Computed example of a mutant assay.
Amino acid sequence: MPSASTPDHVAAPATPPDQPKTNAARMLIGVIVGATVLVIVMLCAFALPAVKGGPHDVPLGLAGPQQVTQAIQGRLPADAWEVSAYPDPQALQNAVKQREILGGFVFGADGVTVYTAGAGGQQVTAAITALGTTMAAQQQVKVAVRDLVPFPADDPRGAGFTAAALPMIIGGVLPAVLLLRLFPGHVNLRRRLAGVILFALVAGATVAAVLQYGFGSLDGDYWFTALGLALGMAALSVPFLALESLFGMAGLGLGAAVMMFLGNPLSGMAGPHWLPSGWAALGQLLPPGASGSLVRANAFFDGTGAGGPVLTLGAWVLAGLLIIIFADRRSARSARADAA
């Protein structure tokens, strides 16, 4: 019985001539939309804190006749100023130096004396000074301004300290990326970890030396400042390695983006009380903000207020170490399973 003849080959369905154009159009639209979203995210991350910036829950002290201090306290916005009364000027000055308050006013027979701590935050210091000057003008008395904790004379505006947040973030990302290139694979995980810790110590000492002795931007004990900077860089590098050990380079990239777009603008290097309270709290929980607060405490306030930032940065380092240990053991079990 004759069988039906079959063709030697089956022709593939023809691709519609307009399909390549459609794919190219979709890719173009995707690039445009993605780039636009990225620009908006960057705009919100860097511009919104500046737009919404202002005094938020700033601790402020008053000293003088009770009738005057009570009247002033009732006039100040509660969401901007947390006002405390002090029995005498000396108690108020001590509170400024111990970081209980960021500044204060003393009302006396000779006028109004404004006490500030410039190293505690330039923008808040300017706001306190302006407020005191306005009060003196309203009462038609003289005003005197005294900065109890100023920045060093070589950098009176604290420009070097304020600009240190972004280099610290780059100092956390760069060694992680370089060590991943030099020592790839899970077999080198511990070697990479040792490398980032060593880099943090060397870079912390170097950056502290440049800021303190080169730029004149920092005061205080050099070694405490250097160790604080090293801890801050380790709190970035170790979690970056941990994210890469779990999710590959995509995890490291995501971590770097979060620190760049959130950690940097919310770091509060110019003073955390200038940000809205929720944003300020978030910024101080991220390594750039905690590292800046630690350097501020060590360099200008003899370590007062350093405990919280040390705990925060230590928690980031510990979390990164635990994730790396987990990834290392998971890799070892996978290697043994493959060998079996």
Rank of each mutant, 00 (worst) to 15 (best):
T15G: 05
R99Q: 15
V141R: 14
G255D: 06
A230D: 08
I101T: 10
A250M: 06
A319Y: 00
L218G: 10
A78W: 00
F105G: 03
G216S: 05
P13S: 09
A35L: 15
A35T: 13
P150G: 07
A144V: 12
G195Y: 08
A63T: 15
N298I: 00
D219I: 01
P239Y: 05
G228T: 10
L311I: 13
S293N: 13
P20K: 04
V83P: 09
A319L: 15
A315I: 08
A297P: 04
S84I: 01
A127M: 06
G220I: 09
H273W: 12
A327I: 06
G111N: 02
A91D: 13
L189R: 04
R157I: 00
A205D: 06
V202K: 04
A24P: 03
G158Q: 10
P77L: 08
M249S: 13
R333A: 14
V124F: 03
G34E: 04
P13Y: 01
M42D: 00
F240D: 08
A176V: 13
T312R: 09
G104Y: 11
F183P: 07
T134P: 00
T225Y: 01
Q19T: 10
G268Y: 05
E82Q: 14
A250R: 14
G34D: 03
T133D: 14
A306R: 12
T225P: 03
F300P: 13
P309G: 08
M135Y: 10
L241T: 08
F199V: 14
L282Y: 02
L148E: 13
A78K: 15
L174Y: 01
A11P: 01
E100I: 11
S293Y: 03
T133H: 09
T125A: 12
G30Q: 09
S267M: 06
A208H: 02
L60C: 12
L166T: 13
V196N: 09
D328A: 15
R99Y: 07
A45H: 08
G268M: 06
M168E: 01
A126M: 06
M259W: 08
A297L: 10
M1H: 08
Q19K: 02
